[in-house]
């Protein structure tokens, strides 16, 4: 891991509310290497989206990144001015959002929106930009691209819009692609098309991908490494094979047990009792202890650290070593 593409160090993002500051992202560190797909998985409110927005510098009031570093090819994005940051965003790093309808501008044509990115970052004239836009659309599998660039977002289906988003994100051949639930709003056959597309592009261009998702199936399919988040913190991090074969954190085990599988017949699912804690009323000690079936007295008292108990396998659980 000598030349990492993205290195996030002790990132902390808070949201101010009436009930005080809420740590949405609490001391998160990880790296993404070129050509590698890192998945962040967790349930709503775990901080996975806030992490991706913090990296892109898109956290707005009442949110604020208060500590940490986001090193992209060695330079800290958090300390850059907005102008300098914009040279990276959309160019060397870009993002795909969950909802393609709200992330495209409804009053501009598709061609307009793709060529805008190209013209902003590359010195080309309008015609070349449009020509490149058509090429991009064809690359993401839109067959009648020259017609689509004249259309508006509302004229396209959800799958098509998501392809357009990907075309925009990839227009400048980014080195890092952040995909925040890129297929959650799509049907499963369209999801398969989009995931296939992201995979191909990452393989061909050695793009690093940070994939944010709640779907463990998508994780198994796409990721090289996996980060599991719970209540704003990383609770487990390892390779995708290791995570599915030997999960060490009880929350990861619970997530795996909660998901129905096609190939396994079971009468009842191993549900995790209770709900995700409110970030304003965090439990003492380990934030997962009220829902954890392995919790012991010590879990209520002290917050566990993220420890590498097994080679290249980190877990935030004092009992992980016991092999639960």
């Amino acid at each position: 891991m000598t030349s990492s593409l993205l290195e996030v160090k002790q990132l902390k993002t808070i949201f101010s509310s009436e009930n005080g500051d809420v740590p949405a992202v609490n001391d998160i560190s990880f790296t993404v290497n070129p050509g590698e797909t890192v998945a962040i998985v967790g349930e709503s409110g775990c901080g996975k989206s806030a992490t991706s927005l913090s990296i892109m510098g898109l956290i707005t009031d009442p949110g604020k990144v208060i500590a940490g570093e986001v090193l992209f090819e060695g330079s800290d994005l958090l300390s850059l001015s907005k102008k300098k940051l914009n040279r990276y965003r959309g160019n060397k790093m870009s993002m795909i959002f969950q909802e393609p309808m709200t992330s495209l501008n409804p009053v501009f044509t598709i061609g307009n929106q793709i060529s805008e990115v190209i013209r902003k970052h590359q010195r080309v004239d309008k015609e070349t930009a449009i020509k490149k836009s058509v090429e991009m659309l064809e690359r993401v599998g839109i067959s009648n691209a020259s017609k689509v660039i004249k259309q508006f977002p509302h004229q396209l289906s959800g799958g098509m819009r998501q392809r357009v988003m990907i075309a925009i994100a990839l227009a400048c051949m980014p080195k890092l692609l952040i995909a925040d639930e890129p297929t959650t709003a799509l049907d499963v056959t369209i999801q398969a098309q989009i995931l296939d597309l992201i995979k191909h592009l990452s393989e061909q261009q050695n793009t690093g991908v940070l994939l944010i998702t709640h779907d463990l199936g998508v994780v198994a399919e796409m990721a090289d490494r996996v980060i599991v988040m719970y209540a704003g913190e990383i609770v487990e991090e390892t390779t995708v094979e290791e995570l599915f074969d030997n999960p060490k954190h009880p929350y990861t085990m619970g997530l795996l047990g909660s998901t129905p599988r096609l190939e396994v017949e079971q009468e009842m699912l191993e549900a995790i009792p209770g709900v995700v804690p409110d970030l304003t009323e965090m439990p003492s000690g380990c934030p997962f202890h009220p829902r954890c079936k392995y919790a012991i007295e010590a879990c209520k008292l002290e917050k566990p650290a993220l420890i590498e108990d097994f080679p290249d396998h980190f877990a935030r659980c004092i009992r992980a070593k016991e092999g639960l």
Binding site: V188, T189, Q191, A192, L195, D215, L216, G217, V218, A220, E221, M222, A223, V240, E241, L243, F244, L256, T259, R261, L262, E263
Partner: peptide, 8 residues
């Protein structure tokens, strides 16, 4: 089309 929960 369903992603299989098995990285192997």
């Amino acid at each position: 089309a369903i992603p299989v929960m098995n990285p192997h």
